[in-house]
Simulated scan of single mutants.
Amino acid sequence: MSDQELTRQDEDLSVPEFEGEERKDGYDFGSWPEVFGLVFTLIVSWLILTIRG
C-alpha cells in the first residue's frame, strides 16, 4: 500500500470506491454507536445537573 492510498480521505473517494472500502473493512455497527453516545451524553448531562443543582 502506498503513502498516497494511506492518506486518502473519505471525501476523496468515489461512491463505488468508498462502498468497496467499507465492505472490505467488514465492520458494520449500524447506528448503535450514535445511539449509545446520545444516551451516554444524556446520562452524564443529567448527573451533572443533578449534582450541581
Rank of each mutant, 00 (worst) to 15 (best):
G20F: 09
S2D: 12
T41H: 10
M1R: 13
E19K: 15
L47H: 01
R52A: 03
V15Y: 12
E19C: 15
T50H: 02
R23G: 12
Q4S: 10
G26Y: 03
S45C: 10
Y27K: 15
L38Q: 13
Q4D: 13
D12C: 08
T7F: 07
L47T: 03
L49H: 00
Q9N: 14
I51Q: 02
D28E: 08
Q9Y: 14
S2L: 04
L38K: 15
F29S: 11
D25L: 11
D12G: 12
E5P: 07
L6I: 08
E21W: 14
R8H: 11
L42D: 01
S31R: 04
P33R: 05
T7V: 04
D10F: 14
V15R: 13
G37Y: 07
V35T: 10
L38E: 10
F36W: 07
R23E: 14
G26C: 04
D3I: 01
P16D: 12
V15I: 12
L42W: 00
E22Y: 11
W32M: 12
K24N: 12
W32L: 10
I43K: 02
D12I: 05
V35G: 05
E5G: 07
F18P: 09
L47C: 02
K24P: 05
L42E: 02
E17Y: 11
D28M: 06
V39M: 06
E34P: 03
G26H: 04
I51A: 01
